[in-house]
Write a protein that binds this DNA or RNA. Structure first.
Length: 410
RNA sequence: GGAGGCGUGGCAGAGUGGUCUAACGCGCCGCACUCGAAAUGCGGUUGGGGAGAAAUCCCCUCGGAGGUUCGAAUCCUCCCGCCUCCGCCA
């Protein structure tokens, strides 16, 4: 959610900002129209309420009764306008950072660097589906019967690999000063909305629980942000670096095709997520830190990857700037996204009312950032496909040996 | 799941229909006293919003949302959370 004052004072700044994200200026104009209406109603209503307080103190009951009717009428008008204004406001995306590359779509994302060497095979490499099934560590067929397509069972070494990845990421982040959180896999709707995940509508990702306002989280970003919703930090308490462990559930409606095969796009996976609360002046630097941490963690796994900076048209509503790590995936002979880190500035914080206060000063909204450490499903793809051997077995990355308790899968 | 109790400012805690502009205390901030500090004294101290060039004025906010009333922290309804007891359960 953007600052209403910014919209009022500098509508052109907002229009220009959201234009490069592909959002039209009409949103801003419509907002200003409704806001003007809202302000008129509010001023009138305040006046009538002041009168009501006065009449009531004077025990002028007759006049107060009459005035009350007018208040009620105005209140319902105000409520209707406020609701419309809110709906528009929520559709206005966060402004992109000046440093974010301009572009209309994914195609214009910018590759910053490649790190690590792609493996060279003296045989035809298999994809993770073939490897996983042959090794008896992933079972898609049974899962699709029991739970539907887009689900999977992990077995034996597949299970060890899943837990090894999680353990590796948690140890890594713990050593970098993060607090570790085991988070709820379900959360109330208001926190989805607060983080900008809309659980309803055609774009909905979220599974909702019937007869409740709970949904399965699509990322622990939701529950991590929610920890401090409505709170005001002391400035010295920031930054807060949190690492959240959760399962993630996504509907992925309509996402099919060869790029979505196997573990690449699934309804459930495990993720260790970084989430940080900072002061505004520190968030750009913190974003660099999160990206550096992702790189260090993935370099530790010795998986070749490249860093992609997301262009304005592909940023999404919440982010002002975003970087993805894409691992080399020999099975598709292409790169595939494995992490994503965003600076959401005060966009989520304003919605969730997360603030901080320097001694004596008025509280301001904090900035929040997020970044993937490990999403197990895609990490498993990257490891199986890059570490496969001619004999069909898979070497365990050095960094995971102590967690796996073995050096080879198969 | 059942029964009962509770939710008030940074903390603690009074207030059960109008004088609440929320007591007293602690903490915090400022000022005075002091060479400085402590102690003491005085003042300030939730957050949000509207009008105005400004001074300033006004509105909302006692877990949340509605309702009753001229008037609600206080009464009613629903929801959320916490506590106690009972039941059930990994």
């Amino acid at each position: 959610m953007l600052d209403i004052k910014l919209l009022r004072d500098s509508p052109q700044v907002v229009k220009d900002g959201i234009a490069v994200k592909g959002a039209g200026p009409k949103l801003v104009d419509e907002f200003l129209r409704l806001d003007g209406e809202w302000r008129t109603f509010t001023a009138n209503l305040d006046e009538k309420r002041a009168l009501q307080n006065k009449l009531s103190k004077e025990r002028n009951i007759e006049a107060a009764k009459k005035n009350k009717e007018e208040i009620k009428e105005l209140e319902s008008k105000l409520a209707a306008t406020e609701k419309s204004r809110e709906e528009i406001l929520l559709q206005i995306p966060n402004l992109p950072d000046a440093a974010a590359p301009r572009g209309k779509s994914e195609a214009e994302n910018k590759v910053l660097r490649e790190v690590g060497k792609k493996p060279k095979f003296d045989f035809t490499p298999k994809d993770h589906l073939e490897l996983g099934e042959a090794l008896g560590i992933i079972d898609f067929e049974t899962a699709s019967r029991v739970s539907g397509s887009g689900f999977y069972y992990l077995k034996n070494d597949g299970v060890l690999l899943e837990f090894a990845l999680v353990h590796y990421a948690l140890d890594f982040l713990r050593s970098k000063g993060f607090d570790l959180w085991f988070t709820p896999d379900l959360a109330r709707e208001k926190y989805y909305l607060g983080t900008g995940y809309n659980p309803r509508g055609p774009e909905a990702q979220t599974y909702l629980i019937e007869n409740s306002d709970l949904g399965l989280v699509a990322t622990s970003e939701v529950t991590l942000a929610g920890i401090h919703a409505g709170e005001s930090f002391a400035a010295e308490a920031l930054p807060k670096r949190y690492a959240g462990y959760s399962h993630c559930f996504r509907q992925e409606a309509g996402a099919y095709g060869k790029y979505s095969r196997g573990l690449y796009r699934v309804h459930q996976f495990t993720k260790v997520e970084m989430y940080v609360f900072t002061r505004p002046e520190d968030s750009a630097k913190m974003h660099e830190e999160l990206l550096a941490l992702e790189e260090e963690l993935w370099q530790g796994l010795k998986v070749p990857y490249r860093v992609v900076e997301i262009c304005t048209g592909d940023l999404g509503a919440q982010a002002s700037r975003k970087f993805d790590l894409e691992a080399w995936m020999p099975g598709r002979n292409d790169w595939g996204e494995i992490t994503s880190t965003s600076n959401t500035t005060d966009y989520q914080a304003r919605r969730l009312n997360i603030r901080y206060k320097k001694g004596g000063e008025k509280p301001e909204f904090a900035h929040t950032l997020n970044g993937t450490a490990i999403a197990t499903s895609r990490a498993i793809i990257a490891i199986l496909e890059n570490y496969q051997r001619k004999d069909g077995k898979v070497d365990v990355p050095k960094a995971l040996e102590k967690y796996m308790g073995k050096k080879v899968i198969g």
